[in-house]
């Protein structure tokens, strides 16, 4: 692809260099900084590999093993346990659904309290927000382990884990939704003689409710993913089967389970995207 532009540019190279010295000879400062950054990042990575005792032997033999496993994965098969798997999948969905709902119900008062325009006290606001952040900082899997040892193995622990992990996120999102609500409808309700309760019911709720509902739907969707793995630590659902089949090296069943999970997640994604679209009437960016 050599256009005429290239020829004329090359012919006039000397002139171009004279007229635009900064492009041909950029100041060395930023370039040195970039190179230093790259060298630093790569150096740190190499140190980390040394510290964590990576060895080519292990990587090589592991890859060979992995290739062998992959061969065993085709064709995926359920090995006669399809009804077990489907039951576990239903349990997973139930955990995700109930856990998210529980979190939403519990987070509603927390979200109201954490909203700047409801509780004006700055110290209280700071305190509530930080505790919500703390809850959010703990991974679902950690919560699952904790609840398994608190209430015993099974889906109940899983539900509580999902609820605990989402409580922080919902509290934050709800409070933001309330903070972003428009003041005018509230003033309108108050001006036409409504009480404080009326203001909340007719002024705030209609604005905030669809946003919250769509966030809850989004979290049900993302919790379907989380709920598939909490079984690994014994908190119910399909993860239990997955961990077991991996430990007993039944690779065709592992492949089947993974495919099952992927299809379920895709279906739930599709349904919830549709529902969210219907509720809000426009695409909402998924909360990060």
């Amino acid at each position: 692809m050599t256009g005429p532009l290239r020829h004329s540019a090359l012919a006039d190279r000397g002139g171009l260099e004279r007229r635009h010295p900064r492009i041909f000879r950029p100041p060395p400062g930023p370039r040195v900084a970039t190179v230093a950054l790259i060298v630093g990042a790569v150096g740190l990575a190499i140190c980390a590999m040394w510290w964590l005792e990576f060895s080519f032997d292990r990587i090589g033999s592991g890859l060979v093993q992995l290739g062998y496993f992959l061969q065993l994965m085709v064709p995926p098969s359920h090995g006669g346990k399809l009804s077990h798997y489907l039951g576990a999948l239903a349990e997973t969905l139930a955990i995700a659904f109930l856990g998210t709902l529980l979190a939403a119900v519990l987070a509603l008062p927390a979200g109201v309290l954490a909203a700047k325009n409801v509780v004006a006290n700055r110290i209280l606001h700071f305190f509530i927000r930080r505790s919500l952040d703390t809850v959010r900082g703990v991974d679902t899997l950690i919560w699952a382990l904790i609840f398994v040892s608190a209430v015993g193995l099974g889906p109940f622990a899983g539900m509580l884990a999902i609820a605990a992990a989402d409580f922080g996120a919902f509290g934050k999102l709800f409070s933001e939704a309330i903070e972003n609500s428009d003041r005018k409808p509230i003033e309108g309700v108050v001006a036409s003689g409504g009480g404080e309760l009326h203001a909340v019911r007719f002024g705030v709720l209609p604005q905030v409710f669809p946003v919250m509902l769509s966030q809850v739907l989004y979290y049900i969707e993302s919790n379907t993913r989380s709920a598939t793995i909490i079984g690994i630590v014994g908190a119910g659902g399909i993860g239990l089967h997955l961990a077991e089949e991996i430990r007993t090296l039944e690779w065709d069943r592992v492949a089947f389970l993974v495919l099952m999970i992927l299809v379920t997640v895709a279906v739930i994604d599709f349904i919830s995207a549709r529902l969210r679209f219907a509720i809000i009437g426009r695409r909402v960016a998924a909360p990060a």
Binding site: L52, E53, R58, I59, G62, L66, F69, R247
Partner: peptide
């Protein structure tokens, strides 16, 4: 899956 293939550890 990788723990089975590569053994326990950070890898």
């Amino acid at each position: 899956i990788f723990v089975v293939a590569f053994g326990l550890g950070a890898l």
